[in-house]
């Protein structure tokens, strides 16, 4: 039975499951490093998922759907940016409002455009980039089967996410943008007094998190599911937030933490198959990723140190 659970597909599935979490988590990292709390990741992801699907339904081109999802993410993130940066409202309240708004707007437009609630028609999806066939049998074929399964079986956004994680990690510690971003979330007045525009820096960071969470939504619909269902993000935005904390507000850490959560998700799906053998209710397996989130946060939160100025609106002068 163990051999049926531990397969290349389990690990490949972990990477797939990790992708939307990691994209949103890196978005959260960038946003919070600038000093803005973003609990709106969930809503932004859902918005991206919906408009991505709508664009594919309208045009038939999945890449246009991806761009639409990111654009929608940026658009709704700009509401959060305006509220928390310019109006200096409470960032948690603004984020919560956006989550509720996203749920309502996507549900409403679903009915308004497609005439029914629930799930949309299937859409054209992005296919895995490579498709190799396994050669015969033997030891090397087995190795190839694992390598092909884990590394080469993925859709484009899965790879793009890994590239984004590496690039963002490098940029955070090696570029002007990264240095200023790190300073912004710690001591915005220090950034202001050396003549860097705090508001602009935070706006850019919030919009980037919108684009990334929107892309996460696109991955869900245009790569994984192939249609949009109401509230399909199902708490992933919040798990992403946890991954960001577990990853200590770094892009690479966020990715690795997401991979852990993704693996838990992949495992629970696998275990569902064996519910006749292991006689526990299926809800128990469904619970796994969330339980893991709680355990990880409880164990790590005492040591993880958030950016000092996160959640505090900045007022000039």
């Amino acid at each position: 039975m163990l051999g049926d659970i531990i397969t290349p597909d389990l690990f490949a599935s972990a990477f797939r499951m990790a992708t939307p979490l990691a994209l949103a988590a890196i978005g959260g990292t960038i946003c919070e490093r600038s000093g803005v709390v973003n609990i709106a990741l969930e809503g932004i992801m859902l918005t991206g998922a919906f408009f991505g699907t709508a664009a594919v339904l309208a045009t038939g081109n999945p890449w246009i759907g991806v761009l639409a999802a990111m654009a929608a993410g940026v658009a709704i993130a700009s509401v959060h940016a305006f509220a928390s940066i310019n109006l200096r409202s409470d960032q948690v309240v603004s984020g919560t409002a956006i989550n509720l708004l996203a749920l309502g707007v996507t549900g409403f437009l679903m009915e308004f455009w497609y005439g029914h609630p629930g799930t949309t028609d299937p859409i054209a999806v992005l296919r895995p980039i490579f498709s190799f066939t396994s050669p015969g049998g033997g030891f090397f074929a087995e190795i190839w089967r694992w390598f092909n399964g884990i590394v080469l079986s993925h859709t484009p956004i899965v790879y793009i996410t890994i590239i984004i994680a590496v690039l963002a990690q490098w940029a955070l510690y090696r570029t002007r943008w990264g240095l200023r971003l790190r300073a912004l979330g710690e001591h915005p007045r220090a950034v202001d007094t050396v003549g860097v525009n705090v508001y602009r820096g935070r706006w850019i960071a919030v919009l980037m998190s919108g684009a990334l969470a929107g892309l996460a939504g696109a991955n869900l619909t245009i790569e994984q599911v192939g249609s949009f269902t109401e509230n399909m993000t199902n708490g992933r935005g919040f798990i992403a937030l946890a991954a960001n904390i577990f990853g200590r507000w770094t892009p690479a850490g966020s990715y690795l933490a997401s991979l852990l959560f993704g693996f838990a998700d992949a495992l629970q799906i696998k275990l569902q198959v064996f519910r006749d053998v292991i006689t526990v209710p299926p809800q128990f397996f469904l619970m796994l990723p969330y339980v893991l989130t709680v355990i990880v946060l409880a164990g790590v939160i005492g040591r993880a140190i958030a950016p000092a100025a996160v959640g505090q609106p900045y007022k000039k002068g």
């Binding site: 300073a183 710690e186 007094t193």
Partner: peptide, 17 residues
């Protein structure tokens, strides 16, 4: 006006890197 987790160099060049 110093950013505590950053290094001396990072703080000094901030804004004019």
């Amino acid at each position: 006006m110093l950013v505590e987790p950053l290094t001396v160099t990072e703080n000094i060049v901030l804004g004019r890197e």
